[in-house]
Each structure stands twice: as structure tokens, then as C-alpha cells.
Write a protein that binds this DNA or RNA. Structure first.
Lengths: 260, 260
DNA sequence: CGTGGCCTTGAAGAATCTCAAATAATGTGG
DNA sequence: CCACATTATTTGAGATTCTTCAAGGCCACG
């Protein structure tokens, strides 16, 4: 049963509560010490012995297939999740089938920090490709955090980082035009892929034009047109979801956000 | 010297570092236990004895005159600030004299949480009327937090709340038109004033049209026009910065964000 | 009482959205 | 493995919203 959930999660849209009840197969657990993502993820900034304390928590792992929800806005909060592999989108549902995408968490990034405020998830997390996550019981995590002042600092930093990230988004949504938004988005993806050891100038987007549009506050047609415009300007080579930045240095220089 | 800074801060735009060096007059300190804002502010959710531990920190108070900066983006991080009275704007400078306003902190609200991530303030805080703040030394605060698991939870909740607030902003900037944005803004102000014991349907805006526009991602002329449109529709009575919502219930119903 | 800042309003222009259609890619069932 | 249905993407053309530029009025302050 637990195995079945791990490998083939049921359709959570229909029975979302199942998600909260059985999010973790008891068998497979994870060690942070040995994880190749440890510097990008929760253990970043912790000492070796602190990381070993995390190991003792024995996080459950969970696979989420493309298109499946890990949790939904309104679900009771129990776990923070760390992405092990694949890409998610976090989003809020709006009136009339519309949604606002608030981010695209990828390997090493945490999801669910917005649920701490009210004990209820404020956003939904949906896998946009096959993914795997670590499920970190929040109550449990707090016990460990309480034992180490340094760990407390690191957790605060992680949450603060999310606040800063959203500041950047507000700047983007509040003051940039379509080209600047798409460029900022691509540069952000580029940097994050680079930090994970992938090429910075050539990558496969995992999200649809509509999802990019929702994230950037523009319509999917505008996203598509802006891709075409960049291509015509020689800045990008675009083939559906495959993107190559012709000259990353030049592209960065042309579009990097000057905050002053 | 310290007194002079408290009552007439020097022009921080010219010598911003002074801000970080001498933010607090040593004499005047504050008790959370007796503060009328305690339920809205940091102590909210703490027990009495925990709040008394805050008292022992003896926060410094500081007055910031209208137009003065409390801190600026890039300043070294040392203090979290709680607004005691008055209104601030938090903002990021953009290229070419433009700015992105990220919020209007008012009494009981915390400022500076975005600085925890990198040890440097990500936004500036500028008083838009005469204000007073409590300055809370972060290193100090952490020591107190480390002594209480409950306090640790409350701090995490406060930071998470800021994340949720920004989610709402992203929704606003990403998916609403001018009328919806301004209405959402007014309803937000209305609720926060109500929580502080003021009238919910009639108030004085402390910020300029330009600042509202920057916050809402639209030009000041559009803000002005939208005010006029609301007035013509009978939804508002507007006289410069004084706003009366004709029928708060109706106004809320017409514009409340339906998240599903 | 003059000056500067803030607000309002108008008119024209630009950016983005909406609607529509064609094409390409993907998945499904036989 | 093919034919068909469905979905994603691109592109065009017209409509809409918001911005830009400009001018005038009001108010506070020196």
C-alpha cells in the first residue's frame, strides 16, 4: 500500500485529503549528509554534525508524477518538502479556471514555507515533470532546530530568502515590460540550472507557455510572441521548449535588472 | 548626540552608514508587556512570561520624521524594526529615479525580515509620516528565541506571513486590472486600520498617488483616474487623500478576491 | 503671495489582450 | 504501429487598457 502510493500516487484532485494522510512511504528514507544537493538545500550552512542530526529525522521520500499535485492550497500543513529531482510549479487558483503561478521550485529548493503562517497551505504544488521530494515533518524539524542556534539561523535565512525572491517578482510584475519579464525569467532559470551543474546557455523549459505567462503576468500569446521577437533579434534560438541563449554574457548585460 | 539623532535624524541619503551605526538612542527603551500593540506585533501568540523575556531585551525606540529613511537597501543588517506609530513605505530603487514600493508597514508590523537572508537590507524603509519604531537587535532576538520553542514558532509564523502577503501581491500584480488593484489596496488598508481600532470605511491615505501607483504596478495618472471612476460609480467619496467607502459591504462583495 | 509639489483631466499613442485560425506535437485506442 | 482526438504553439488582426505627454488647478510652505 505504501509502496503503491510512492510509485503511483492516486489522483489527488479527486481525493486531496489522501495526500495529507499518507504522504510518505515509511520504508524509503533519506540522508542529507550523503545527498548531492546538500549545499543547495536545507543543510546549506549547517555544520557536519548538525547535518547528521537531520539524518536522524529520516525524511520520507515521495515520487510525484508529472501533472500530479503534491499538496493543494487549503490542505492542512504538516510537511515542508524539499525537491530532490524534477520541477514543480507552485500556484494559487483564481476565479474562472485561471491560476497565478508563484514559482517553479527545482532540485534543492523548499516548498511549503507559506503554510507555516496559518497551518494551511496557501499555494498548491504540482509536478510539471516526474519528480521526487523529501517530506520533512515540520513539528519534527522544529525539535531539531530548537537544539541548535545555528540551525535556527539557517531556517530564518531560508525563509528570508523566499521573501527576497518574491520582492524580485514584485519588481518584475510591477515595473517591467514583456521582453524584460521573459528575459528575467530565462536568466533566472539559467542561473539556477548553472548552480545545479547544468549548462547556463542552453536548456529545456519544463513549463508550458501558459504557465510562463501566468508566472510573468502576461498571456501565453504574448509569451510566444516575445520568444519569437528574441529569436528574430538573434538573442535566442527557440525550438518549442528548447532554448539556447546565443550570447549569455550579452543577453545578461542587455537585460540584467539594474537596481539603482 | 544620541538625542539629536533621535529627534532630528541627519539626511541619511547623504551618509547612509550613519543609520546603521547609531540607530538607537540608548536612553529610551520599551516594554512589550505594556504595549497596546502587543497582540498585533511580535508578542502576538507568545505567553506572558515569554513576552516578559522580550521586555528584558529593552528595545531602543527611535523617531523617524516624515520623508526620512530608517534604512536603505544595501545597508548592513543589524536590527529588525517594529512600527510603533505612523506609516512607512518599503521600496527598492530601480534604474532611472523609479522605485518599486513593496509595502506600507504600519503600527505593529515588522520591517527588515528580508535582510536576514544576506545580512544586508534588500529594501529601503522610508517614513511617509512622522513615525516611531522599536529597534530589535537581531542577534539579541535570536538568543531569546533560542530559549523558547514557542517563540521559535512565532518567529517562523511572522516570516511565513510575510511570504503569504507577497503571494497576494503577486496575484494582484499578475492578474488584476487597474480597478481591481486599487480596490484590493483600499480593502487591505481598510482591514488593517480596522484591526487597529480605526474606522474601516473612512480614512486618510498617507501615501501619494505615485506611491500607490508604484505599489500597484500602474502610473499615478491611472491611479487618479481610477479613483475618479470609483467616485463616479458612487463607490467612493474621494477628496485628495481622504477616502470614504460608500458601502463597505457592497464594495467588498464587488471586489473581494475569489481564490477559486 | 509666489513657488513647487501633488493631483486631475484630456488626447494621442503604445503595449498587451482577445479572438481566430493554422500548424505541430502528443497521447489514445484499435 | 496507424488514425484520430486532444493539446500546445505560433501568428495575424482588431479591440482594449494603460501609458505618455501636456496643461491646468489646488494646496502647503516659505
Amino acid at each position: 500500500m505504501t509502496l503503491a502510493i510512492a510509485t503511483a500516487p492516486s489522483v489527488l484532485r479527486v481525493v486531496p485529503i489522501m495526500n495529507a494522510r499518507t504522504p510518505v512511504p515509511a520504508v524509503v528514507t533519506t540522508s542529507c549528509s550523503g545527498c548531492h544537493l546538500r549545499d543547495l538545500c536545507l543543510p546549506g550552512g549547517l555544520t557536519g554534525s548538525e547535518t547528521e542530526r537531520l539524518d536522524q529525522m529520516r525524511f520520507g521520500r515521495r515520487k510525484v508524477a508529472a501533472g500530479q499535485a503534491l499538496y493543494r492550497a487549503g490542505d492542512k500543513f504538516q510537511f515542508i518538502y524539499a525537491v530532490r529531482s524534477g520541477t514543480f510549479k507552485s500556484s494559487m487558483a483564481l476565479a474562472g479556471d485561471r491560476e497565478q503561478v508563484t514559482g517553479f521550485p527545482m532540485a534543492g529548493e523548499l516548498m511549503g514555507l507559506d503554510a507555516i503562517a496559518n497551518g494551511v497551505h496557501a499555494t498548491s504544488a504540482t509536478a510539471i515533470e516526474d519528480t521526487e521530494v523529501c517530506a520533512i515533518q515540520y513539528a519534527h524539524l522544529n525539535e531539531v532546530v530548537a537544539q541548535s542556534g545555528n540551525f535556527q539561523l539557517v531556517m530564518a535565512q531560508l525563509m528570508s530568502r523566499e521573501i527576497v525572491r518574491e520582492h524580485g517578482l514584485m519588481m518584475l510584475l510591477g515595473s517591467m515590460n514583456a521582453e524584460q519579464r521573459l528575459a528575467a525569467f530565462l536568466l533566472n532559470i539559467s542561473q539556477r540550472l548553472k548552480a545545479r551543474g547544468y549548462a547556463a546557455d542552453e536548456f529545456h523549459l519544463r513549463m508550458s507557455r501558459a504557465e510562463i505567462g501566468s508566472f510573468l503576468g502576461m498571456k501565453l500569446e504574448t509569451v510566444s510572441r516575445t520568444f519569437s521577437a528574441f529569436q528574430q533579434q538573434g538573442l535566442l534560438e527557440v525550438d518549442k521548449k528548447h532554448v539556447r541563449i546565443t550570447d549569455l554574457h550579452e543577453f545578461t548585460r542587455a537585460f540584467e535588472t539594474r537596481v539603482h
